[in-house]
Amino acid sequence: MSAQAETPFPPGALEREAETADTRRRWLLSLPAIAIIVCAAAGPLLVMVIYSFLTPGDYGNVKWEFSLEGWMNTIVQRDIFDDTLIWADAHLSIFWRSFSLSLITTILTLIIGVPTAWFVATQPPGRREFWLFLVTVPFWTNLLVRTIAIQELIRSEGVINLVLLKIGIIDEPLQMMFTDFAIGFGMTYVYLPLMVLPVYAAVDKLDFRLVEAAHDLYASRWTAFRRVILPLIKPGIIAGSILVFVPCLGAYVTPRVLGGGKNLMFGNLIELQFGAGRNWPLGAALSLMLMAAVMVALIFYVRITSREKADG
């Protein structure tokens, strides 16, 4: 520092100049990214917010008249005959079903996905690619096709029922189609790779010498898992849970095909407003509500999991 006293600039001036140039360059370089974020995320979001405060058009679309009806309709309904307001408990029950089914699906993918990821990650290096390939194969097929395949498995004359009838475990076919079970089963299948991949990445990074160290220090297999492995692969588990839970909440195809018309999920409810319901503002408001719910859920989840970390 003292050597700088001889330069004609006051101390720090050169650094500051370099810093501003640096900042300018950084802004310039990130312009494309910013443009994409604005066009792809902020823009549509803004449209949704505006639409949610407009009046439904007669044949879909919106009229440019300000209205709170869209937001009101998310929780109350105007009775068609006497114009009184009643709770929109259909919306609430649909929301609740979406939430609980998504939660159950996330837990199921955790139970199945973590051991699967573990299995793949502990294979000898040459064989891992093969197993990873198998995990990702479903991605190569259209979601609708995969869902219809599930339908083929679980419908009354489907493979599962046929087999169970043959070996005499059941006397008449189980009704699995068009139930919450069908939706949960389908979503677990569809979103499982999204759990396996991030957990695999975490297990792959895990230093197995730490597991040996835990055993060396008298940890049983279970304690070593709980005290050492689990905390270290937690980032992967968090990422996987988010990747499964969020799209589950808004799932549309799977509940539509496997749940039939009765067992709607939130995604179908929203779709209904933009389609047959012809109530775009309500659809927009419901979408925004879903977004808010996802964000709250994520914040809670991350809070809880990171607090555990701080406690050790």
């Binding site: 230093d207 160290a213 060396d216 220090l217 050492v228 270290l232």
Partner: peptide, 13 residues
């Protein structure tokens, strides 16, 4: 028996 590992293997968390 306890081990001091070559790379220490301390628990990072």
């Amino acid at each position: 028996i306890n081990t001091v590992f070559q790379n220490y293997a301390l628990f990072p968390h």
